[in-house]
């Protein structure tokens, strides 16, 4: 048991090191002068003294290998460095952005689950037509690109109907459209998997025996079948979380919502190396944690796995 946990942790550390190295060298390959990027608030004409100072301060005049080792050393002590573009320590900044993105992701995941469950429950009990409609809806929902869904929701709910604000700056109503944008396609994926498992579960021996014991149809659905059908969807949640974070890049940009995704895209366009590395590291950490958690949740929820 302890061995397995240690192996897992060692694996996680290895992945983080590799992620940090890949990101560092990747961003270093970009052509252009990083000192200019530090001073390059749009429109500033950097003086030679300023450039020289920045090169020295950030260590750009050092060999790349030295810069790389320095970077790793700082990472090991939890120091993510200093953002070129924002002139602030990356660590606290990224952490302050993490909350907003996590809130968005968790709400979207929860809503996607609800939508998927409701659709699956309805479409498995409503006969062939309902099954077809449900399956069609799920397939289309899963195919909706975030950027298109977001702009369409803004047109309908903000511009035509004026119900929800098009920007998400605090306040509960501002969360509605971003959460919907992320939840609908995800619900499409989760719904498909739940419906298939639900159909299988409803025909399984334990449901038949529950029915024969005289349990109500509703009771059977809620207590046995749905629980059983959720298992594969739980194991999907790790993936779902990763895809939500990647979706946050688009959604936070469109809805002007502070968060990791928007920070990352900004950092990418400004070539803010420490910031890109910081965001990617945090995403990797959170993603690895989520994967471990969903593994554990699957084990807990599935008696067969718990035994093995």
């Amino acid at each position: 048991m302890i061995g397995r946990v240690a192996a897992r942790l060692g694996g996680a550390v290895f992945v983080l090191w590799a992620v940090a190295s890949i990101t560092f060298f990747a961003v270093r390959l970009i052509p252009g002068d990083p000192a200019q990027a530090v001073l390059g608030g749009p429109g500033s004409q950097a003086s030679p003294e300023a450039l020289a100072m920045v090169r020295n301060e950030y260590g750009f005049d050092q060999p790349v290998l030295v810069q790389y080792l320095a970077q790793l050393g700082r990472l090991a002590t939890g120091d993510l460095g200093r953002s070129y573009a924002l002139n602030q320590d990356v660590g606290p900044l990224v952490l302050s952005q993490l909350g907003g993105t996590l809130l968005l992701a968790v709400l979207a995941l929860a809503l996607a689950w609800l939508l998927a469950l409701a659709l699956a429950a309805w479409s498995t009990r409503g006969g062939t037509v309902a099954a077809r409609v449900g399956s069609g809806l799920e397939t289309v929902a899963a195919a909706l690109p975030h950027f298109w869904l977001a702009t369409s929701l803004i047109v309908v709910f903000s511009i035509w109907l004026g119900v929800f604000p098009p920007v998400s700056t605090g306040g509960a109503t501002g969360l509605v459209l971003p959460v919907l944008t992320l939840a609908i396609p995800l619900a499409g994926f989760l719904g498909q998997i739940m419906r298939e498992s639900l159909l299988l579960a409803l025909e399984s021996p334990f449901v038949l025996s529950a029915r024969s014991r005289g349990e109500s149809e509703r009771g059977v659905l809620w207590t046995h079948a749905l629980r059983h059908a959720s298992l594969p969807a739980i194991s999907l949640s790790g993936w779902a979380f990763g895809s939500l974070i990647s979706g946050a890049v688009v959604v936070e940009t469109i809805f002007a919502r502070p968060g990791l995704g928007r920070t990352l895209l900004n950092a990418v366009t400004l070539r803010d190396v420490p910031m890109v590395i910081g965001v990617v590291m945090i995403v990797a950490v959170v993603y690895i944690l989520m994967t471990l958690l969903t593994d554990a949740a699957t084990r807990l929820a599935d008696p067969r796995l718990r035994l093995s």
Binding site: G11, V19, F241, G242, S243, Y287
Partner: peptide, 8 residues
Amino acid sequence: EVLFAFPG
């Protein structure tokens, strides 16, 4: 595994 740590 490393590549999978960059989701999406």
